[in-house]
Design a protein around this nucleic acid. Structure first.
Length: 530
DNA sequence: TCTATCACTTC
DNA sequence: TGAAGTGATAG
């Protein structure tokens, strides 16, 4: 791959302030574990999170895009990502319930432009959009469930509508982002956010992308057309395309598609070759994700919530491309801790690039950094996910989104975010986030805190040190470890719906959790997990 | 840059 | 069969 990371200008890697440098953190294969220095408790706190490994599905395809400089269309109505974000997860306790969710955080604080066939920085990023979390519709579900098959986030949609009422992830056009996967151990209520919530975060640098309202690089257009079934109609090696175009234009004669022309013109070099090259860092690393494990948060989930989004703030977190992020464990620390130090900011900056680990390697992320952490889960009922994961209606289940206000890293802090769970049906429109404010008001609400943290963190996280996971990256194959045993799914106990979310969480909640998130009351079956 | 609309596709 | 996801296109 190209230089991965550079394409989009991400050259820098996060430093380690907060986190240990990748190297340090990196632990070989297994590393994800938690040993993050930061967390003292790693062992215990991380309760079972340490052996979790995540493999990006279709890594090769992601890598192809990454090498060119992945672009994702964002529309007012919401657009799916392609390639789709799908992962294979192993190392989960079959009986323990987990909540899988994603967030997409700013990869740096720049605004990009595509000119001269390449991406370049054109200024400072706009304020981050409200951070939102996309909770996988099957959540909460047992480790057996998640391990059994690929976990797909293909229904996740991206939008540029700051007031989006559907719970889609809100992004700014011409800005670079990094998707992150968070695996959170469900609490007694099948939610997350409680104090001892354990979670880990995985980042695949090759999934970084620049959000656009229309494709800038024709190479990306071509890759999308070639690989996305829904774009099949545009594949036209034959005359089909010309005929189609002619038809569209109402002409009898073949017309050369504009795109074709344009593409040709551009195709010459890789766009990103320029300074800003790719999102990704080293090609090699591509597959691996890095994760940061957070073992547990001691702090209540809420704390997490409260954490601010980090994005911008961070100095550039550029992730390294290619590198796997591994999990950072933020373990137990309180948010404050996480957030606090100023230094941390820099941490992000440093890209993991440095030595990007080879594919195989993974870096361990210390969780320390404030936010990187995952989603905060909240105790809130709201956040609680109730349902039975397996319920037949899964289809119906919708993913929940949690929104935060802004994820800013800057502050590193702990500003709280709001999250929402939008459900299409049930969603309540939430309020928009406070527009770009930096700190959301919500900050510290207990309830939301953790989530927000995650959310926020999300942003920041990128910068954070990430661990690379060697394994993870392996695109395909997950290591054997995953236990395939499938435990029967436990149905969840009766669900409880939660009352809508209240203000405490974060103000902007976009949505009600109700739907998705119902929380259940006691069902401790999984408790054993750790 | 962004949006609405189009024809085409998958599901 | 219709809903929904695609990139292309014009404005």
């Amino acid at each position: 791959m190209a230089n991965g990371g550079d394409q989009f200008g991400l050259a820098e890697r996060p430093d380690s302030d907060c986190m240990d440098s990748p190297k340090e953190t990196k632990q070989e294969n297994q590393s994800y574990a938690l040993n993050s220095p930061a967390s003292p408790q790693t062992a215990s706190s991380q309760q079972g999170m340490e052996g979790i490994k995540v493999f990006l599905h279709d890594r090769e395809l992601w890598t192809k895009f990454d090498e060119v400089g992945t672009e994702m269309i964002i529309t007012k109505a919401g657009r799916r990502m392609f390639p789709s974000y799908k992962v294979k997860v192993t190392g989960l306790n079959p009986k323990t319930k987990y909540i899988l969710l994603m967030d997409i955080v700013p990869a740096d604080d720049h605004r990009y432009k595509f000119a001269d066939n390449k991406w370049s920085i054109t200024g400072k990023a706009e304020p981050a959009m409200p951070g939102r979390l996309y909770v996988h519709p099957d959540s909460p579900a047992t480790g057996a469930h998640w391990s059994r098959q690929l976990v797909s986030f293909q229904k996740l949609k991206l939008t540029n509508n700051h007031l989006d009422p559907f719970g889609h992830i809100i992004l700014n056009s011409m800005h670079k982002y990094q998707p992150r996967l968070h695996i959170v151990k469900a609490d007694e209520n099948n939610g997350f956010g409680s104090k001892n919530t354990a979670f880990c975060t995985h980042v695949f640098s090759e999934t970084a992308f620049i959000a656009v309202t229309s494709y800038q690089n024709h190479k990306i257009t071509q890759l999308k057309i070639e690989n996305n079934p829904f774009a099949k109609g545009f594949r036209g090696s034959d005359d089909n395309e010309l005929h189609r175009m002619a038809k569209l234009q109402g002409k009898d004669y073949p017309v050369v598609p504009r795109s074709t022309v344009r593409q040709r013109a551009c195709s010459a070099g890789s766009p990103f070759s320029g300074e800003v090259q790719g999102l990704r860092g080293s090609p090699e690393a591509a597959a691996s994700p890095y994760s940061c494990e957070n073992g547990l948060n001691s702090s209540s989930p809420q704390e997490l919530l409260s954490a601010p989004p980090a994005h911008y703030s961070l100095p550039h977190p550029h992730l390294q491309h290619g590198q796997p992020l591994q999990v950072y464990h933020c373990t137990k620390r309180k948010v404050e801790e996480n957030c606090s130090s100023g230094n941390r900011q820099h941490s992000y900056k440093k890209p993991f690039t440095g030595s990007s680990p080879s594919e195989g390697e993974s870096y361990y992320h210390p969780s320390s950094y404030p936010p990187p952490p995952p989603p905060s889960l909240s105790n809130n009922p709201a956040l609680g996910l109730t349902d039975s994961p397996y319920s037949s209606d899964m289809g119906q289940r919708q993913a929940c989104m949690f929104a935060g206000s802004e994820p800013r890293l800057d502050e590193l802090n702990c500003a709280p975010w709001s999250y929402t769970c939008p459900l299409p049906s049930a969603m309540t429109p939430m309020e928009p986030y406070p527009p770009y404010t930096t700190h959301p008001p919500y900050s510290s609400s207990p309830q939301g805190s953790r989530l927000s943290a995650i959310v926020h963190q999300s942003s920041p996280p990128l910068g954070e040190p990430i661990a690379h996971d060697p394994y993870q990256n392996q695109s395909s194959g997950p290591p054997p470890q995953s236990s395939q045993n499938i435990h029967s799914r436990q149905l969840s106990p009766p669900l409880r719906e939660y009352p809508r979310y209240t203000p405490n969480l974060s103000p902007p909640l976009y949505h009600t959790l109700e739907t998705h998130t119902h929380i259940r009351c006691g069902v401790p079956e999984w408790s054993a997990a750790s």
